[in-house]
Write a protein that binds this DNA or RNA. Sequence first.
DNA 1: GGGCTATGAGTAACCAGTTTCTAACACCGG
DNA 2: CCGGTGTTAGAAACTGGTTACTCATAGCCC
Lengths: 357, 357
Amino acid sequence: MRASTENGDQERDRDGGGGPRAGRRGPRPAGAATISRVAEAAGVSRATVSRVMNGSPTVSPELAARVRAAAEALDYAPSPAARRLALGRTGTIALVVPDLGNPLFQGVLRGLSQAAGKAGRQLLVAESDEDPEEEVILALEARRNSDGLVLASPRAPAERLCSIGERLAPFVLVYREVPGLGAPSLSIDNAAGVRDLVAHLTGLGHRRLAYLAGPPGSAGNAERLAALRAATGGLEVTVLPCGSMFDDGHAAAPAVVERGASAVVGFNDMVASGVLTGLRELGVGVPDDVSVTGFDDIPFARYTTPPLTTVSIPKSELGRQAWERLWALMNGEGGGYNVRYQPRLLVRGSTGPAPSR
Amino acid sequence: MRASTENGDQERDRDGGGGPRAGRRGPRPAGAATISRVAEAAGVSRATVSRVMNGSPTVSPELAARVRAAAEALDYAPSPAARRLALGRTGTIALVVPDLGNPLFQGVLRGLSQAAGKAGRQLLVAESDEDPEEEVILALEARRNSDGLVLASPRAPAERLCSIGERLAPFVLVYREVPGLGAPSLSIDNAAGVRDLVAHLTGLGHRRLAYLAGPPGSAGNAERLAALRAATGGLEVTVLPCGSMFDDGHAAAPAVVERGASAVVGFNDMVASGVLTGLRELGVGVPDDVSVTGFDDIPFARYTTPPLTTVSIPKSELGRQAWERLWALMNGEGGGYNVRYQPRLLVRGSTGPAPSR
DNA sequence: GGGCTATGAGTAACCAGTTTCTAACACCGG
DNA sequence: CCGGTGTTAGAAACTGGTTACTCATAGCCC
């Protein structure tokens, strides 16, 4: 598993070079130029250096040039830590998600990262590992180190979120709506997506459905399941506990066969892909014997065999939009209304007419 | 000289309570308690509050209790910005990657996020969008806002990295080795992986190979291609320009058929999956007519049809290990040697005996 | 009982910027 | 020639912590 080494570990820094104040404080860059040194070198006050570095127009051109030259010569860059303190802002926004392995949150991460990056903001990321209380703690912690927060918190109780809502502001909630919470939320109309899927399946003649349920605590799973129950009035629906990962879906295949369902509605694309593989291994034809649908339209959904019928949700768009909302909030503009995105049904090869039997 | 009459200026901030200077500065929490207010409330000095908050043992128990009560009552939490400045460290580490959509970097992100989170460190993430110079700029920027850096920089020229190496320290390079760079690197033995694949394929009788090349600037692609050339002495190898995404591989399928290769070596699992789908659409049987291999073992690789033969690399382990190395470096321990991980061949269903022809 | 030491807590000097206030100076009009 | 005005740049206060010194007191030993 492990292998070769190569040297490395060079001189270390010149640490005690100066001698007298060797190792004076902790891990400071040691040689880093400060505003004071630049001021001294340019023969001006610190205030003037600050003004020049921030492009204030109230500095005469020749002085500004002298300061810039000195800054250049000393390779000076203002300390972000000092600016944070003085300005009271961090130039950073934070994202807290339950699971970085989930394509849903990866999409938000990407969209947010790009939007924030374009605006010159840094991005702090924290993963709560799907623990409800951890979500809350990390959110508070992350928020203290940033100017605003994007929070994906499918597990934390609504009351808990409301109780700390004030301390999290400005923030945006994604993939969830919490009534009464003083923050805009960007969510998916899960019910509409499920209705589209069910309509598609019943249109194909399916009457016996199986639902592969997501994680019990998940708000998204609760919504999808409720919508499914509502949309399948006269039909037979079996709910099978499953999960959210490939292997969960894979493991559920025998149960699906046993129940004799003609169509399987997966909590998400991953369990749907898993069950796809599992069914094939059991010799069940998809979509000839059983139809399968997913949810989310993860990048891989079009490359399964057969390609997965699913509903598409705008993951990166959520990230981009979260940035826009957050930006508005940080500037004191309202922008506090909720958006619920409509998923789009994508019919691919994994669904077909119900077997006549 | 400083004036600071210590309690003389305490008066100052109580006038904010009224209306006169409402909205005085930018986005400060406004009501947030400071160490001074806690000190006042507890009737002690700021130094004592600081000592209590940091668990210094040189405070008498009753005083400590009084301070803690005051802090609790005021809902006080030390300002991270002020601590950063005073301590000269940020409590944060940074990760810079070219593309957050790539499972390779997602794996590192997860491993690093979990390891750093467990150690109570925050994680800053930046995406360079595969631009060589952007990689460098973002790395410098991210490093200035953190105590250490994990850098995945497949595009930036080696000399450029060396020239800024000192300013990035402490840092760890992943998925790449740059001789002479003063930082440990964690990389994959691409050559060994390619050799394993080639041995596997030739063992099955394949003599005409096609390589689906990755992005031209990528260091990983260069290594894999060089290793392929070295490992396929007497064989016929066609190199097809491709890319790194599903669609790139999908689009390359016709060219593969045209060249009459009996085995396709994909730059990574995504192009391999893409070509898998493309070949099936063209009516080419895998592995009966053509064998296909990938690289990286992304989570999806075992769920393609047929499951993808590939080599596995320890993505999350790289992230965890990067944290360990970084931690050692930040504590002044050496730990600066390089590690090159050996990939592991995973034979699945996408490879089989060469057609007899 | 007096000197010595250990201990707890306060003072003030940092960290490295930003910003308000103020003073000096040039320019202008009366 | 003088007062009013406008510009420029500096002095100093401010962001909110940490920590090296310092000092007072209490306990201990001789």
